[in-house]
């Protein structure tokens, strides 16, 4: 669905690249996470893929269309949700979506249904200028679904949303993906990426450091240990043991056979910890 090869971009038109030799492919039906801290080159890459930034160097194909000679009709198959909400504040929520649906040549979704789906039911006739930041963000998200996109670009879709609403947005993304929509998710939120993405790319300083599935990354970089809490002589004790080394495995079996176990957890590395391990950088 997306093919990127040898992508470079410089805002200053010199060798100070915001994006440097970026290459990846996203097959149809995948949720691909593009992860990195602010200024890493995530939005620049998404900007080029969606035609908002001119392609300077590299080979990029989106939904079968070469970005170099992008045509408006390509956007019939694409949806874009921006990090900064960008809806008309002087129009109502319904008017905003009703206007945008007219700009596509494919069957579109009912604005009211979308408004309800993102939890804005009952607010459809209010001017967007009266909305909170989170409500505007949800409307921007809803708008990106208006044309039933086959390829969906999502830039920080849950930023600024409370946990319940963020969970709803995640469910919508999952549901769309199950229907076959390919998702290109740009975020610095590793929990969202972990939950939604089939594969993730770590990008730092304009370069991709790694691409793999969250599961493989955890297997590769996780600490394969178990923490066990038990009662010994009436007093609580805690030990952390390797699940790989023979000596620790024997000790774990001994504890299990001898003492009353209170809690026991395998420790799994988070994506954020792996990101720091791989890139040497934090996400903020």
């Amino acid at each position: 669905m997306i093919h990127v090869s040898g992508l470079y971009h410089s805002y200053s038109q010199d060798d100070r690249y915001a994006v440097k030799d970026v290459s990846f492919d996203v097959p149809k039906g995948e949720v691909f996470g593009f992860l990195g801290p602010s200024g890493a080159g995530k939005s620049t890459t998404q900007g080029i893929l969606t035609g908002l930034l001119k392609l300077q160097q590299g080979d990029v194909t989106v939904a079968g269309y070469p970005v170099k000679s992008m045509k408006n009709e390509m956007f019939n198959r694409i949806g874009v949700s921006f990090e900064q909400s960008n809806v008309y504040s002087k129009l109502t929520a319904r008017e905003n979506l009703a206007f945008y649906r007219q700009l596509f040549d494919v069957p579109t979704r009912d604005p009211l249904e979308l408004i309800r789906q993102v939890g804005l039911g009952g607010k459809e006739n209010l001017k967007v200028g009266t909305f909170s930041k989170g409500m505007k963000h949800r409307l921007t998200f809803a708008r990106s679904m208006i044309n039933n996109p086959e390829l969906w670009f999502l830039d920080e879709p849950t930023t600024g949303l409370d946990p319940a609403i963020a969970a709803n947005i995640k469910d919508i993304i999952k549901a769309q993906n199950e229907k076959g929509t390919t998702v290109f998710l740009t975020t610095h939120n590793m929990f969202i990426a972990d939950e939604l993405c089939h594969r993730v790319a770590f990008i730092v300083d304009g370069e991709i450091k790694l691409i793999d599935s969250p599961k493989n990354l955890k297997l590769q970089y996780g600490e394969k240990v178990v923490t066990v809490e038990y009662l010994a002589d009436g007093r609580p004790q805690t030990e952390t043991l390797s699940t790989v080394q023979a000596e620790d495995k024997a000790r774990l079996q001994a504890i299990l056979g001898t003492y009353e176990i209170m809690t026991m957890h395998t420790k799994e590395a988070t994506l954020e910890e792996i990101f720091i391990t791989v890139t040497g950088r934090g996400l903020t």
Binding site: V80, Q84, N86, V87, L103, D105
Partner: peptide
């Protein structure tokens, strides 16, 4: 100010 030009640019209209 509202950023709506970008939103228009990713529609099937010119």
């Amino acid at each position: 100010k509202e950023g709506v030009i970008n939103a228009y640019a990713v529609t099937a209209s010119s």
